[in-house]
Design a protein around this nucleic acid. Structure first.
Length: 389
DNA sequence: TCTGGGGTCCTAGGACCC
DNA sequence: TCTGGGGTCCTAGGACCC
């Protein structure tokens, strides 16, 4: 079987870099994107620093200068403020990020059409066909040239930099794109695995997260190389048939997943964390209003995507961070806010309401395209369900 | 001073049907 | 009355990713 050439392209500090296009005078300084507006609007063109932040936001992206101070995405802003009190705090502008996301993906597709979306700031690209298009003498150096070409095209279209990994599969490319960030191109062949991949922490494998990584550590397995040399039977014993076998394969750089250029959405959801925990009884009215507005927003999203769904889900997070979910499947798929609200209300009845709540979410799953069967008129005209809190 | 929001996939148990 | 295996759907929780 001829080798495949799969690229993983990852935008460098994407949100923060988009902000720096707008505010170039902040370039070279520590800055983070994240949080929610609280308190008075700052004057036009100025930003607060982390020092004065109060609230529950987290960092979505940090510039490399901010990362050097120890802050990273996912970190609470209050914690980040301790490490980098003078970092600029930039409010997120998702419309703008989506716009740049479209731009960079279009630029890539113009050169290499087989693109798999992995969220707003990264993609996989199957380069195999174009690597061999003109009977490349040295396909690996041809692959590097194409990666360079992609980088230039992205920069030209957006003004932004990206990092690219090119290897025989998605698993390795994902790891490779991270090796020479920012602005790097890393080309790896199977023979490079022992030298370049095995020294890395097992956590670098996409799919091994904090939990699995901690369990591996406890078993004395820290690096990908150690994972590769572990007895598969031992891994299966500790992680189960599927995960154990997968871990062993992954550590050896084996991955057969193909680049998928299109997929249907499986679920659509909206959730919100309150600025202050809400009491199910005392804040009943406020909760009811938020609950309904989440349903309305999910319905709008469904409409925009042209889908309907029949499994309505409720998500609730208590003040102690414990999270519960409830599902309710209705007879016919719907996109109607009132119907969603009613089904979510059924879910709410099955959830304990004995402590304060920090998050409320509504999800619609089991999605389909609205078929020839019209939704029941009774469902359409029904009023929003009465308050349940 | 804890920990966002939008997703996917997996597991496991129970209901129900054949 | 008991036993059984397979398939599908539904539900709840959790790990993980961007």
């Amino acid at each position: 079987m001829p080798p495949h050439f799969i690229a993983h392209l990852d935008m460098d500090a994407f949100y923060a870099s988009v902000e720096l296009l707008r505010y170039p005078h902040l370039r070279g300084q520590p800055a983070v994107v994240g949080g929610r507006r609280r308190g008075p609007e700052p004057a036009e063109g100025t930003f607060p620093t982390l020092r004065h932040y109060t609230g529950r936001g987290v960092i979505t992206t940090a510039t490399y200068e901010a990362r050097a101070l120890g802050v990273h995405s996912g970190m609470g802003l209050m914690k980040a403020a301790k490490l980098a009190p003078d970092a600029w705090l930039l409010p997120a502008d998702f419309d703008q990020y989506r716009r740049y996301s479209r731009l960079f993906k279009e630029a890539v597709r113009a050169i290499a059409p087989l693109v798999e979306d992995r969220g707003i700031d990264e993609i996989y690209i199957d380069l195999t066909d174009i690597v061999f298009a003109n009977g490349a003498v040295d396909p690996w150096s041809r692959a590097r040239d194409i990666a360079l070409q992609l980088q230039s095209a992205v920069r030209e279209a957006t003004g932004l930099s990206c990092s690219i990994g090119v290897t025989p599969n998605k698993l390795l490319s994902k790891i490779a794109s991270d090796l020479e960030k920012p602005g790097g191109i890393t080309v790896l062949r199977a023979a490079d695995i022992p030298a370049r991949i095995w020294p890395l922490a097992a956590r670098k494998i996409n799919g091994i997260g904090p939990k699995a990584s901690a369990r591996l550590d406890a078993l004395g397995i820290h690096t990908i190389g150690e994972l590769a040399h572990a007895d598969p039977a031992f891994l299966i014993e500790h992680f189960g048939r599927n995960t154990g076998a997968w871990m062993h394969d992954a550590a050896h750089g084996r991955d057969e997943r193909v680049v998928v250029t299109y997929s249907e959405p499986k679920s659509i959801s909206r959730e919100t964390t309150f600025e202050d925990d809400l009491h199910p009884v005392r804040d009943r009215e406020k909760l009811t209003q938020i609950f309904t507005s989440l349903c309305v927003r999910v319905a709008e999203d469904l409409m925009r995507k042209g889908v309907v769904g029949k499994t309505i889900g409720l998500k609730l997070r208590y003040d102690n961070f414990k999270t519960v979910t409830r599902d309710h499947t209705i007879a016919a798929p719907t996109g109607d806010a009132a119907t969603i609200r009613r089904a979510a209300g059924e879910c709410l009845k099955r959830v304990p309401l004995d402590r304060r709540i920090r998050l409320l979410g509504v999800r619609v799953g089991a999605l389909s395209k609205p078929g020839a069967v019209a939704p029941a008129k009774a469902e359409v005209r029904a009023a929003l369900a009465p308050s349940l809190f």
